[in-house]
Amino acid sequence: MEVRTIKVFTTVDNINLHTQVVDMSMTYGQQFGPTYLDGADVTKIKPHNSHEGKTFYVLPNDDTLRVEAFEYYHTTDPSFLGRYMSALNHTKKWKYPQVNGLTSIKWADNNCYLATALLTLQQIELKFNPPALQDAYYRARAGEAANFCALILAYCNKTVGELGDVRETMSYLFQHANLDSCKRVLNVVCKTCGQQQTTLKGVEAVMYMGTLSYEQFKKGVQIPCTCGKQATKYLVQQESPFVMMSAPPAQYELKHGTFTCASEYTGNYQCGHYKHITSKETLYCIDGALLTKSSEYKGPITDVFYKENSYTTTIK
């Protein structure tokens, strides 16, 4: 009895394709271990004539594949690729409408935090270190965002349907971005203890939790000093293409032309909904596939993004 075979390709990165001759009487799992086709788990399936010449994702289970996976995804987590594939199996079914010149995501599976993050990423200057993220990001900007969303979920250790947080998501993504040249110098002034300067680099240099107003941050924000008295913390120097200011959701007025974009969060910790506000020729609110415009805006804002380049204080 002759062994019926077909020729397929296996890959971990969709760049390096490895030619395989597979036995049609055995499952993919018996031949390769966990195997995925377009995100779908085909591990328990036997090869079919229609699979001839198709590319299958496999887990990096030998040295060659491990090197290829690390170079593309910059992670050695053995569960990463499987999590990416199972997320992709959902995100490829989502709709990605162009809204006001940006790629958004039609609401499904509690994905409003991903839509808000995706919209924000198209408006701030950011370059990702893992080629996987950078490639998928370019495709997302062009309207094909399924891979990018699935990668975000995998890097953030999230599953489809789980509630997510924009600030946490951005923080994970910033860790995989090139923020080497970003720098922030802060000064804390206390009447009792004097003053202390701190220099922050990388992710810490672009994120701040405690106030939404970048102007206020430049002037000074009140913080408790270690001595128990009130101290003032203010920005001395900022070198970065953008800054992200966050605070627990509270009524906040966004003035046209003073910011790049913002995240609105309605609801409580267990259950809520994100919308995205962007400042173009007027203010726009993007909620999944829905767009509304207004000249002014007041609502429960939790993150505001500002364009920056270089700032030095005039406070002496």
Rank of each mutant, 00 (worst) to 15 (best):
R4P: 12
I6F: 12
K7V: 07
V8P: 02
V12N: 06
I15G: 00
Q20L: 09
V22C: 14
G29T: 05
G33L: 06
L37R: 13
D38W: 10
H48A: 14
L59N: 14
V67Y: 13
E68N: 09
T75E: 08
T76D: 13
L88S: 01
N89C: 14
H90W: 09
T91K: 02
K93A: 06
Y96W: 05
N110G: 04
N111A: 05
Y113G: 01
L114W: 06
L119F: 01
L119P: 04
K127M: 07
P130Q: 05
L133M: 03
D135V: 08
A140H: 08
A142W: 08
A142T: 14
A145I: 00
N147A: 09
C156V: 08
T159Q: 15
T159H: 15
V166I: 05
V166F: 15
R167S: 04
F174M: 06
Q175G: 04
N178K: 11
D180F: 08
K183A: 06
R184V: 01
C190S: 03
K191P: 15
Q196T: 12
Q197I: 09
K201E: 07
K201G: 08
G210A: 06
L212W: 01
Y214W: 02
E215S: 08
Q216R: 06
K218H: 01
I223W: 11
C225W: 00
G228H: 01
G228I: 02
L235A: 01
Q238G: 04
S240N: 04
S240W: 03
M245F: 11
P248Y: 04
Y252T: 09
K255H: 06
T258S: 07
T258M: 06
C261G: 03
A262G: 07
G267C: 14
N268D: 12
Y269N: 15
Y269W: 12
Q270R: 10
C271Y: 13
K275C: 07
H276Y: 03
T278M: 12
S279T: 07
E281A: 05
T282Y: 11
C285S: 13
K293H: 12
K293T: 13
S295H: 11
E296H: 14
E296D: 12
E296P: 12
I301G: 00
I301L: 04
T302P: 04
D303R: 01
V304Q: 00
S310K: 15
T312Q: 14
T314M: 12
